[in-house]
Amino acid sequence: MSSPATFTPPPGARAYSLRTARGEFAVVDAPVADGVVPRGVALLVPGFTGSKEDFNPLHVPLAERGYRTVAVDGRGQYESDGPAEDESAYAQQELARDVLAQVAALGEPVHLLGHSLGGQIARAAALLDHTPFRSLTLMASGPAHIAPSQQERVKLLRDALAVMTMAEVWEAMRAMDAPEEAAAVELGDGLDNREDLRRRWLGTKPAQLISTGRQLCAEPDRVAELAAVPLPFHVLSGALDDTWPLPLLDEMAARLRARRTVVEGAEHSPNTDRPAETARALADFWDETAED
Protein backbone atom coordinates (compact mmCIF):
# COMPACT_ATOMS: atom_id res chain seq x y z
CA MET A 1 0.00 0.00 0.00
CA SER A 2 1.37 3.41 -0.93
CA SER A 3 1.60 5.91 1.92
CA PRO A 4 1.36 9.58 0.95
CA ALA A 5 3.20 11.89 3.32
CA THR A 6 0.14 14.10 3.42
CA PHE A 7 -3.41 14.03 2.12
CA THR A 8 -3.51 17.84 1.92
CA PRO A 9 -3.23 19.17 -1.66
CA PRO A 10 -0.19 21.40 -2.19
CA PRO A 11 -0.58 25.20 -2.30
CA GLY A 12 -2.48 26.36 -5.37
CA ALA A 13 -3.96 22.93 -6.16
CA ARG A 14 -7.72 22.33 -6.23
CA ALA A 15 -9.54 19.18 -5.15
CA TYR A 16 -12.85 18.78 -6.97
CA SER A 17 -15.05 16.37 -8.93
CA LEU A 18 -14.26 16.24 -12.64
CA ARG A 19 -17.47 15.74 -14.62
CA THR A 20 -17.11 13.40 -17.59
CA ALA A 21 -19.35 11.48 -19.96
CA ARG A 22 -18.79 8.42 -17.73
CA GLY A 23 -19.48 10.03 -14.36
CA GLU A 24 -17.62 12.17 -11.88
CA PHE A 25 -14.08 11.50 -10.70
CA ALA A 26 -12.30 13.07 -7.73
CA VAL A 27 -9.15 14.91 -8.78
CA VAL A 28 -6.37 17.09 -7.44
CA ASP A 29 -5.62 19.67 -10.13
CA ALA A 30 -2.41 21.69 -9.77
CA PRO A 31 -1.84 24.62 -12.16
CA VAL A 32 1.43 25.79 -13.65
CA ALA A 33 3.46 27.91 -11.23
CA ASP A 34 3.10 31.69 -11.44
CA GLY A 35 5.42 33.26 -14.00
CA VAL A 36 6.24 29.92 -15.68
CA VAL A 37 5.44 29.32 -19.35
CA PRO A 38 2.89 26.48 -19.64
CA ARG A 39 4.29 23.41 -21.38
CA GLY A 40 1.44 20.93 -21.09
CA VAL A 41 -0.95 18.92 -18.96
CA ALA A 42 -0.37 15.53 -17.34
CA LEU A 43 -2.99 13.04 -16.12
CA LEU A 44 -1.73 10.87 -13.25
CA VAL A 45 -3.38 7.48 -12.65
CA PRO A 46 -2.71 5.76 -9.28
CA GLY A 47 -2.07 2.11 -8.51
CA PHE A 48 -3.65 -0.73 -6.56
CA THR A 49 -4.95 0.43 -3.12
CA GLY A 50 -3.71 3.92 -4.05
CA SER A 51 -5.32 7.28 -4.75
CA LYS A 52 -4.69 10.70 -6.25
CA GLU A 53 -2.87 11.72 -3.05
CA ASP A 54 0.04 9.44 -3.99
CA PHE A 55 1.07 12.15 -6.46
CA ASN A 56 0.92 15.10 -4.04
CA PRO A 57 4.75 15.36 -3.82
CA LEU A 58 5.03 15.74 -7.62
CA HIS A 59 2.65 18.65 -8.18
CA VAL A 60 4.87 21.54 -7.09
CA PRO A 61 8.11 20.51 -8.86
CA LEU A 62 6.19 19.75 -12.05
CA ALA A 63 4.30 23.07 -11.82
CA GLU A 64 7.66 24.81 -11.62
CA ARG A 65 8.65 23.10 -14.88
CA GLY A 66 5.51 24.34 -16.63
CA TYR A 67 3.20 21.36 -16.26
CA ARG A 68 -0.35 21.36 -14.97
CA THR A 69 -0.90 18.02 -13.24
CA VAL A 70 -4.25 16.35 -12.66
CA ALA A 71 -4.20 13.32 -10.34
CA VAL A 72 -7.35 11.22 -10.33
CA ASP A 73 -9.10 8.64 -8.18
CA GLY A 74 -10.29 5.93 -10.54
CA ARG A 75 -13.76 4.47 -10.40
CA GLY A 76 -14.35 3.02 -6.93
CA GLN A 77 -11.06 4.42 -5.56
CA TYR A 78 -11.23 6.57 -2.41
CA GLU A 79 -13.33 9.62 -3.31
CA SER A 80 -14.59 8.49 -6.74
CA ASP A 81 -17.83 6.56 -6.52
CA GLY A 82 -18.48 3.11 -7.92
CA PRO A 83 -20.50 -0.02 -7.17
CA ALA A 84 -19.50 -1.89 -4.03
CA GLU A 85 -20.21 -5.40 -5.32
CA ASP A 86 -20.39 -5.35 -9.15
CA GLU A 87 -16.93 -6.51 -10.19
CA SER A 88 -17.73 -6.17 -13.90
CA ALA A 89 -17.81 -2.38 -13.46
CA TYR A 90 -14.06 -2.55 -12.83
CA ALA A 91 -13.04 -4.60 -15.86
CA GLN A 92 -9.85 -3.17 -17.33
CA GLN A 93 -11.58 -1.96 -20.50
CA GLU A 94 -14.13 -0.07 -18.40
CA LEU A 95 -11.38 1.63 -16.41
CA ALA A 96 -9.51 2.43 -19.62
CA ARG A 97 -12.61 4.08 -21.07
CA ASP A 98 -12.87 6.12 -17.87
CA VAL A 99 -9.36 7.46 -18.55
CA LEU A 100 -10.36 8.45 -22.08
CA ALA A 101 -13.42 10.24 -20.67
CA GLN A 102 -11.27 12.08 -18.13
CA VAL A 103 -8.97 13.36 -20.87
CA ALA A 104 -11.96 14.44 -22.96
CA ALA A 105 -13.28 16.39 -19.98
CA LEU A 106 -9.95 18.16 -19.54
CA GLY A 107 -10.29 19.35 -23.12
CA GLU A 108 -6.76 18.95 -24.43
CA PRO A 109 -4.17 16.24 -25.11
CA VAL A 110 -2.27 15.08 -22.03
CA HIS A 111 0.90 13.34 -21.03
CA LEU A 112 -0.46 10.14 -19.45
CA LEU A 113 1.28 8.58 -16.45
CA GLY A 114 0.18 5.39 -14.73
CA HIS A 115 1.69 3.99 -11.54
CA SER A 116 1.72 0.19 -11.09
CA LEU A 117 -1.86 -0.99 -11.76
CA GLY A 118 -2.49 2.50 -13.12
CA GLY A 119 0.18 1.86 -15.75
CA GLN A 120 -1.67 -1.17 -17.06
CA ILE A 121 -4.94 0.78 -17.13
CA ALA A 122 -3.15 3.62 -18.94
CA ARG A 123 -1.70 1.12 -21.42
CA ALA A 124 -5.19 -0.24 -22.10
CA ALA A 125 -6.47 3.31 -22.69
CA ALA A 126 -3.69 4.04 -25.18
CA LEU A 127 -4.45 0.78 -26.99
CA LEU A 128 -8.11 1.79 -27.27
CA ASP A 129 -7.30 5.29 -28.59
CA HIS A 130 -3.86 6.89 -28.48
CA THR A 131 -4.88 10.20 -30.07
CA PRO A 132 -5.71 12.09 -26.81
CA PHE A 133 -2.21 11.44 -25.46
CA ARG A 134 1.07 13.24 -26.05
CA SER A 135 3.12 10.52 -24.34
CA LEU A 136 2.79 7.53 -22.01
CA THR A 137 4.87 6.96 -18.88
CA LEU A 138 4.70 3.58 -17.15
CA MET A 139 5.95 4.09 -13.59
CA ALA A 140 6.81 0.92 -11.67
CA SER A 141 4.43 -0.92 -13.98
CA GLY A 142 5.50 -4.05 -15.83
CA PRO A 143 4.78 -5.91 -19.04
CA ALA A 144 2.41 -8.55 -17.65
CA HIS A 145 1.28 -10.03 -14.32
CA ILE A 146 2.92 -9.20 -11.01
CA ALA A 147 5.62 -11.33 -9.36
CA PRO A 148 4.51 -14.60 -7.68
CA SER A 149 5.21 -13.27 -4.18
CA GLN A 150 2.94 -10.31 -4.83
CA GLN A 151 0.29 -12.56 -6.35
CA GLU A 152 0.16 -14.41 -3.03
CA ARG A 153 -0.40 -11.16 -1.16
CA VAL A 154 -3.16 -10.10 -3.54
CA LYS A 155 -4.82 -13.52 -3.25
CA LEU A 156 -4.79 -13.23 0.55
CA LEU A 157 -6.47 -9.84 0.27
CA ARG A 158 -9.11 -11.10 -2.16
CA ASP A 159 -9.85 -14.07 0.10
CA ALA A 160 -10.18 -11.78 3.10
CA LEU A 161 -12.52 -9.40 1.29
CA ALA A 162 -14.78 -12.32 0.45
CA VAL A 163 -15.57 -12.94 4.11
CA MET A 164 -14.71 -9.73 5.99
CA THR A 165 -15.76 -6.09 5.90
CA MET A 166 -13.33 -3.41 4.73
CA ALA A 167 -12.96 -2.24 8.34
CA GLU A 168 -12.14 -5.76 9.53
CA VAL A 169 -9.58 -6.24 6.75
CA TRP A 170 -7.94 -2.93 7.64
CA GLU A 171 -7.52 -3.98 11.26
CA ALA A 172 -6.14 -7.35 10.19
CA MET A 173 -3.60 -5.72 7.87
CA ARG A 174 -2.45 -3.31 10.56
CA ALA A 175 -1.99 -6.20 13.00
CA MET A 176 0.30 -7.88 10.44
CA ASP A 177 2.47 -4.78 9.82
CA ALA A 178 6.11 -5.09 10.71
CA PRO A 179 7.09 -2.51 13.36
CA GLU A 180 9.04 -0.37 10.88
CA GLU A 181 6.12 -0.42 8.42
CA ALA A 182 3.69 0.60 11.14
CA ALA A 183 5.96 3.48 12.11
CA ALA A 184 6.22 4.65 8.50
CA VAL A 185 2.45 4.64 8.11
CA GLU A 186 1.95 6.46 11.39
CA LEU A 187 4.62 9.11 10.93
CA GLY A 188 4.85 9.74 7.17
CA ASP A 189 7.35 12.64 7.03
CA GLY A 190 6.44 13.69 10.53
CA LEU A 191 2.70 13.59 9.97
CA ASP A 192 0.33 11.12 11.57
CA ASN A 193 -1.56 9.97 8.47
CA ARG A 194 -2.83 6.65 9.81
CA GLU A 195 -6.41 7.95 9.97
CA ASP A 196 -6.15 9.39 6.45
CA LEU A 197 -4.99 6.01 5.14
CA ARG A 198 -7.81 4.28 6.98
CA ARG A 199 -10.34 6.69 5.51
CA ARG A 200 -8.95 6.07 2.02
CA TRP A 201 -9.16 2.32 2.54
CA LEU A 202 -12.76 2.47 3.76
CA GLY A 203 -13.69 4.74 0.84
CA THR A 204 -12.42 2.26 -1.74
CA LYS A 205 -14.99 -0.22 -3.01
CA PRO A 206 -14.25 -3.91 -2.29
CA ALA A 207 -15.34 -4.94 -5.80
CA GLN A 208 -12.72 -2.58 -7.22
CA LEU A 209 -9.97 -4.24 -5.18
CA ILE A 210 -11.14 -7.76 -6.00
CA SER A 211 -11.46 -7.09 -9.73
CA THR A 212 -8.24 -5.13 -10.17
CA GLY A 213 -6.34 -7.56 -7.95
CA ARG A 214 -7.43 -10.36 -10.23
CA GLN A 215 -6.23 -8.33 -13.22
CA LEU A 216 -2.80 -7.83 -11.67
CA CYS A 217 -2.41 -11.57 -11.23
CA ALA A 218 -3.49 -12.48 -14.77
CA GLU A 219 -2.46 -9.54 -16.99
CA PRO A 220 -1.03 -10.79 -20.31
CA ASP A 221 2.04 -9.34 -22.01
CA ARG A 222 0.75 -6.61 -24.36
CA VAL A 223 4.07 -4.90 -25.01
CA ALA A 224 4.14 -5.83 -28.70
CA GLU A 225 0.70 -4.25 -29.15
CA LEU A 226 1.78 -1.12 -27.35
CA ALA A 227 5.00 -0.84 -29.33
CA ALA A 228 2.90 -0.41 -32.48
CA VAL A 229 1.22 2.70 -31.01
CA PRO A 230 2.79 5.95 -32.29
CA LEU A 231 3.55 7.55 -28.93
CA PRO A 232 6.74 8.44 -27.04
CA PHE A 233 7.16 6.01 -24.13
CA HIS A 234 8.93 6.32 -20.80
CA VAL A 235 9.57 3.45 -18.38
CA LEU A 236 10.41 4.81 -14.93
CA SER A 237 11.04 2.86 -11.73
CA GLY A 238 12.94 2.83 -8.49
CA ALA A 239 16.21 0.98 -8.13
CA LEU A 240 14.39 -1.83 -6.29
CA ASP A 241 10.98 -3.28 -7.10
CA ASP A 242 9.50 -6.52 -5.78
CA THR A 243 6.32 -6.20 -7.86
CA TRP A 244 8.03 -6.25 -11.28
CA PRO A 245 11.78 -6.99 -11.05
CA LEU A 246 13.99 -4.45 -12.79
CA PRO A 247 15.20 -6.81 -15.56
CA LEU A 248 11.57 -7.13 -16.70
CA LEU A 249 11.21 -3.35 -16.79
CA ASP A 250 14.53 -2.97 -18.64
CA GLU A 251 13.42 -5.49 -21.25
CA MET A 252 10.03 -3.83 -21.63
CA ALA A 253 11.68 -0.46 -22.19
CA ALA A 254 13.89 -1.95 -24.90
CA ARG A 255 10.91 -3.53 -26.64
CA LEU A 256 9.06 -0.20 -26.56
CA ARG A 257 12.15 1.79 -27.62
CA ALA A 258 11.28 3.82 -24.55
CA ARG A 259 13.24 6.24 -22.45
CA ARG A 260 14.36 4.36 -19.32
CA THR A 261 14.80 6.03 -15.94
CA VAL A 262 15.89 4.33 -12.72
CA VAL A 263 15.48 6.56 -9.67
CA GLU A 264 18.19 5.71 -7.16
CA GLY A 265 17.05 5.39 -3.56
CA ALA A 266 13.47 4.62 -4.61
CA GLU A 267 11.51 1.38 -4.61
CA HIS A 268 7.99 0.69 -5.94
CA SER A 269 6.77 4.28 -5.41
CA PRO A 270 9.36 6.73 -6.79
CA ASN A 271 6.69 9.43 -6.60
CA THR A 272 6.78 9.31 -2.80
CA ASP A 273 10.26 7.85 -2.22
CA ARG A 274 12.17 10.39 -4.34
CA PRO A 275 9.70 12.99 -5.63
CA ALA A 276 12.20 15.65 -6.70
CA GLU A 277 14.24 13.24 -8.80
CA THR A 278 11.10 11.62 -10.20
CA ALA A 279 9.56 14.97 -11.17
CA ARG A 280 12.81 16.02 -12.86
CA ALA A 281 12.91 12.83 -14.92
CA LEU A 282 9.26 13.22 -15.94
CA ALA A 283 9.61 16.87 -16.95
CA ASP A 284 12.82 16.18 -18.88
CA PHE A 285 11.01 13.47 -20.86
CA TRP A 286 7.95 15.62 -21.50
CA ASP A 287 10.15 18.53 -22.58
CA GLU A 288 11.90 16.29 -25.10
CA THR A 289 8.61 15.07 -26.58
CA ALA A 290 7.67 18.69 -27.29
CA GLU A 291 10.96 19.21 -29.12
CA ASP A 292 10.66 16.12 -31.36
Rank of each mutant, 00 (worst) to 15 (best):
A91G: 15
A91Q: 14
Q92S: 12
Q92Y: 09
Q92F: 05
Q93Y: 00
Q93K: 14
Q93E: 15
Q93S: 15
Q93H: 13
L95M: 15
L95E: 13
L95R: 12
L95A: 12
L95P: 10
A96N: 14
A96R: 13
A96S: 14
R97H: 13
D98S: 09
D98M: 05
D98C: 06
D98K: 07
V99K: 03
V99C: 03
L100G: 09
L100F: 07
L100S: 07
L100Y: 09
Q102N: 02
Q102R: 12
Q102C: 11
A104W: 05
A104H: 06
A104G: 12
A105T: 08
A105W: 04
L106M: 13
G107P: 09
G107Y: 07
E108T: 12
P109W: 01
P109S: 09
P109Y: 03
P109H: 02
V110S: 04
V110Y: 05
V110E: 08
H111W: 00
L112S: 06
L112W: 08
L113Q: 09
G114T: 08
G114D: 05
H115E: 07
H115D: 03
H115T: 04
H115N: 12
L117K: 01
L117V: 00
L117Q: 10
G118K: 00
G118Q: 03
G118T: 01
G118H: 02
G119D: 04
Q120D: 00
Q120K: 13
Q120L: 14
Q120C: 02
I121W: 00
I121S: 01
I121T: 13
I121P: 00
R123A: 08
R123Y: 04
R123K: 07
R123E: 11
A124W: 01
A124M: 06
A124L: 02
A124Y: 01
A125F: 04
A125E: 03
A125R: 04
A126R: 07
A126V: 15
A126C: 15
A126I: 07
L127I: 11
L127S: 08
L127N: 06
L128C: 01
L128T: 14
L128I: 14
D129G: 10
D129F: 07
D129Y: 06
H130C: 06
H130T: 04
H130E: 12
H130Y: 13
T131W: 00
T131V: 10
T131S: 15
P132G: 09
F133L: 03
F133D: 02
F133V: 05
F133Q: 02
F133H: 08
F133A: 04
F133M: 03
R134W: 00
R134I: 03
R134V: 10
R134F: 01
S135E: 09
S135I: 06
L136G: 07
L136Y: 04
L136W: 06
T137V: 11
L138G: 09
L138V: 05
L138T: 09
M139A: 14
M139I: 05
M139V: 11
M139W: 06
A140F: 07
A140Q: 09
A140W: 06
A140Y: 06
A140T: 11
P143K: 12
P143Q: 15
A144K: 12
A144D: 15
H145W: 13
H145R: 15
H145N: 13
